[in-house]
Design a protein around this nucleic acid. Structure first.
Length: 879
DNA sequence: TTGTAGTCAATACC
DNA sequence: GGTATTGACTACAA
């Protein structure tokens, strides 16, 4: 019975790994089985004896039962009719309720793509119209709905898989390095699963956790082996390497299993003692494993430590006064070491695991407890007092290994990713040696569950909020880059964008709302302490000081130097970002760390992971050792200098690194094979006339047909993708801009800026009001804009009839090119918007610009309306 | 396949 | 040197 309730995620993860493991040992082409959606209905009866823990696992895969299993509870026999619409409705309900994406659902439950899921859920066919094949998803969905555990487990997976599933679904070109990459990605996921679940379940189900630990060994060990595996020329041996890796891993796994057993049986063990669970290898290298393969800086942090923070949370709770505005009581369930957008699911799953220990999880209970915490939180936008004690305790107690300043997130081996990477290159541009540029990139602490739950769903005046932030930044001399880095897990550009053109709250997704919540918390002072190097925590300063005692010229890690430089800048700026009252707590004089003894015998990951500080000198040394050991005489480096059409080769020779162009050191074949794909694409910069032409095209057709896009691209000598991107970006930005202007206009009229959520379109406001904002260049005033009488009907002008471009001819301006361009570069005959037509003449060019934008946006809206109207189903209009 | 949201990061601008 | 702009990309959903 217990086995029957085995969490879906662990089953699936295990099955995946089982498949990988088994096939990797048996099949010389592991990549052939590592990819593609797992069809659980056919793969859940694996014959592999490994790993041994799975022997106790049931063959019951609740989500994708075999035909015989599908006859079980909750399933429907083949002949039985189903109410497809109802099933779809219930599934949708559950997905929404649990924030499960269609992609994950489709992947794990139905074995279908996201698009197919959407189709099935939105427009389920009647049962009678379905073929046998078409009925399958409904069987699966019904079974999925039949057991809440399925849903809960999938939700858990969602949190871990979000953002990564694509790489699994996609079938990459066969290549052994891709296979390794896949293994590592699997490792990452598995680690995340195990760390979250293992902690929560450790007291009740040591066997489960024991199995997890064993898996860790595989991955950690695999990483080590991969890291030090073959030189570039031996990529053909990679499959063999993988098998070797896995065989060694299996042996180690078995050994570890035996070793761990007594420890894991100690159910009363304090969470902070979890580090005892294994050798340093079994614990510390998790960070690089778990984080290295994810691009974003908001990689999930070490959830292995969630147990640690549970304790911390409980301690913190005791420190919170009963009338504390900001309670952190539920930190005991938060598993606070979660990063970015996925922490919530993570928190949920951790909480689930925790509750499993005392009883069956209940969604309603969960919701209820969240509701409880909600009431204790201040409203966003208010100037509610802060409860510094609790929040500061929370931040302060971040374990060093998962400090907001992740030291080693990029230190593990990074395998090729993306189109830039040659499949056959075992040392791609994203090799660990080169990815040090992201070392110590700060990862902002996650919002607490309470903050998240409370702030996420109440409307926020983003304009007002960002204004306050801007004021405070200016007042305190805080630059956007640091603010974005320390307070928001964003680039300077994003910060600038967000502050100057915030989207309306209703237009923001949960992910998009997070930065605004952080802003509010920052304004409230609730994040201030998180930006400080806490007493005893030196990792923020360490890279700088460590590097300062490292002979920089000797370092092969030029990117690491940049990182160091960045660290120094942060140090400079940090004082200004912290709260005045906290300034005295900063520790500018942190002692220089010494290189840890015994580094030479460790892998890079181990070395970094074991060190509380980042010793760049030791790492540099180790890197060189690895290179030398593996006969890596050179490595590639992407050269980002724009306008350069060739990449430079960085040559490493002995202990010296000389940078220069020495392509002759490589064979021509290698250059062509490796170098070409690594060329950094120069950024496209559109000429003003090209932009103007595109804007004019947009005014006519905000949603041009593919044919028109092709034509535009051809005429403008741009890539089609550039034109497509431009339209996407322009639509998005013009909407946002209009929102700002509307808000400001409304504010000028004394209205409530947030009273009309989503009213970012130009509809409704045709007057030349006091709007002043015209921060961008689009819509340059021209004489013809005043020619209101020549407007076409919007329904005609915006439409891209039959894909035929239809641009009004230009008048009175230069015509650099013929055809479409002839008109695009001209002055518009019309602005094609009723809004503008109805507007009285405005003399202010800015007003004219606004009208122009509104007109364009109105076309946009009309397009969407018409598109929606063409659909059969009722549509909820929102613009 | 298309559209939106979110974001990065190169580059322009001040 | 800080900020603004913007082309490109990913994730997700319809």
């Amino acid at each position: 019975p217990l086995a029957g309730k085995m969490a879906l995620n662990s089953l699936l993860q295990r099955q995946l790994m089982q498949t990988i493991y088994t096939k990797a040992l048996q099949d010389p082409s592991p990549s052939s089985v590592l990819f593609g959606p797992p069809h659980y209905a056919t793969t859940n009866s694996l014959s592999s004896p490994l790993p041994p823990q799975s022997a106790g696992s049931p063959e019951v895969n609740g989500l994708a039962p075999s035909p015989s299993q599908s006859e079980g509870a909750g399933s429907t026999s083949e002949g039985e009719e189903m109410d497809t619409a109802e099933i779809a409705r219930q599934v949708k309900e559950q997905l929404i309720k649990h924030n499960i994406g269609q992609r994950v659902f489709g992947h794990y439950v139905l074995g279908l793509s996201q698009g197919s899921v959407s189709e099935i859920l939105a427009r389920p066919k009647p049962w009678s119209k379905l073929t046998i094949r078409g009925k399958e998803p409904f069987h699966k969905m019904k079974h999925f709905l039949s057991d809440e555990q399925n849903i809960l487990a999938l939700r858990s997976i969602q949190g871990r898989q979000r953002g990564n599933i694509t790489t699994r679904i996609r079938t990459p070109e066969t290549g052994s390095d891709e296979a390794i990459k896949s293994i590592l990605e699997q490792a990452k996921r598995e680690l995340q699963v195990q760390k979250a679940d293992g902690v929560g379940e450790r007291q009740r189900r040591s066997g489960y956790h024991r199995g997890s630990g064993s898996y860790f060994q595989i991955y950690a060990h695999s990483l080590r082996l991969v890291e030090s595996s073959q030189p570039p020329s031996s990529s053909s041996n990679s499959d063999e390497n993988i098998r070797s890796i896995l065989e060694q891993a299996r042996r180690e796994m078995e050994a570890q299993q035996v070793a761990l057993e007594p420890v894991l049986k100690a159910s009363s063990m304090a969470p902070t003692d979890l580090s005892l669970l294994g050798s340093p290898l079994s614990t510390l290298p998790y960070t690089p494993i778990a984080q290295s393969l994810k691009k974003t800086s908001t990689s999930p942090l070490l959830d292995f430590h969630s147990g640690v923070k549970k304790e911390i949370g409980e301690v913190a709770v005791s420190d919170v006064g009963v009338d504390g505005v900001h309670k952190l009581g539920r930190l005991s369930e938060s598993g606070g070491g979660l990063g970015g957008g996925s922490w919530r699911e993570h928190w949920w799953s951790t909480g689930l695991s925790e509750r499993r220990g005392t009883g069956q999880p209940s969604v309603s209970e969960d919701a209820h407890s969240q509701e409880d915490s909600k009431e204790k939180l201040p409203r966003l936008g208010s100037t509610a007092p802060v409860a510094p004690a609790s929040s500061l305790d929370y931040w302060k107690d971040w374990p060093s290994s998962e400090s907001p300043y992740s030291q080693s997130s990029e230190l593990s081996l990074q395998m090729p990713s993306g189109s830039e990477t040659p499949q056959s290159s075992p040392l791609p541009s994203s090799s660990p040696l080169l990815s040090l540029s992201k070392v110590a990139k700060p990862v902002v602490p996650p919002l607490t569950p309470e903050q998240y739950e409370y702030y996420m769903y109440q409307e926020v005046d983003t304009v007002d909020l960002t204004q306050q932030v801007k004021d405070k930044l200016a007042k305190n001399g805080i630059c956007q880059r640091i603010f974005g880095e320390k307070v928001l897990g964003l680039s300077q550009g994003s910060v600038s964008d967000m502050l100057s053109r915030p989207k309306h709250w209703s237009k923001l997704t949960q992910k998009g709302r997070e930065p605004f919540i952080r802003m509010q918390l920052w304004l409230n002072g609730e994040l201030g302490q998180a930006l400080l190097p806490m007493p005893g925590q030196t990792q923020e300063i360490t890279p700088k000081t460590s590097a300062s005692c490292s002979p920089a010229p000797e370092s092969p890690l030029s990117s690491a130097e940049e990182s160091v430089k960045s660290q120094q800048e942060e140090q400079m700026c940090r004082a200004s970002i912290q709260e005045p009252s906290e300034t005295s707590e900063s520790q500018p004089g942190t002692p220089l760390p010494l290189p840890l003894p015994g580094h030479s015998g460790l892998s890079i990951q181990e070395m970094v992971a074991m060190s509380p500080e980042l010793d760049t000198y030791a790492i540099t040394k180790k890197v060189k050792e690895v290179l030398t050991d593996n006969n890596l005489a050179y490595m590639k480096r992407r050269h980002s200098s724009i306008g350069e059409s060739h990449s430079l080769e960085t040559t490493l020779s002995g202990s010296d690194l000389t940078q220069g162009t020495s392509p002759q050191n490589l064979s021509q074949q290698q250059q062509q094979q490796h170098q070409q794909p690594q060329l950094k694409k120069p950024r496209v910069v559109l000429a003003p006339e090209e932009k103007e032409a595109l804007k004019r095209a947009y005014q006519q057709k905000p949603y041009p047909s593919p044919k028109t896009i092709e034509e535009l691209a051809s005429q403008l000598n741009l890539k089609t993708s550039t034109v497509i991107n431009w339209f996407h970006n322009y639509r998005s930005r013009i909407r946002r801009e209009l929102f700002i202007e509307e808000i400001q206009a409304a504010a000028g009229e004394g209205g409530s800026p947030s009273a009309r959520p989503g009213k970012s379109g130009g509809e409704g406001d045709n007057s030349c009001d006091g709007t002043e904002s015209d921060s961008t260049a689009e819509g340059r005033p021209s004489g013809s804009e005043e020619r209101k009488g020549l407007l076409e009907s919007p329904s005609l002008s915006h439409r891209d009839e039959e894909g035929e471009a239809e641009f009004p001819s230009a008048s009175g301006t230069s015509r650099p090119r013929g055809g479409i361009i002839d008109s695009l570069f001209g002055i518009p005959e019309s602005i094609s918007a009723a809004a503008t037509a109805a507007a009285p003449p405005c003399r202010n060019p800015k007003d004219s610009s606004l009208r122009k934008k509104k007109a364009a946006n109105l076309n946009n809206i009309i397009h969407r309306l018409e598109k929606a109207a063409n659909r059969d189903e009722p549509h909820e209009w929102e613009f």
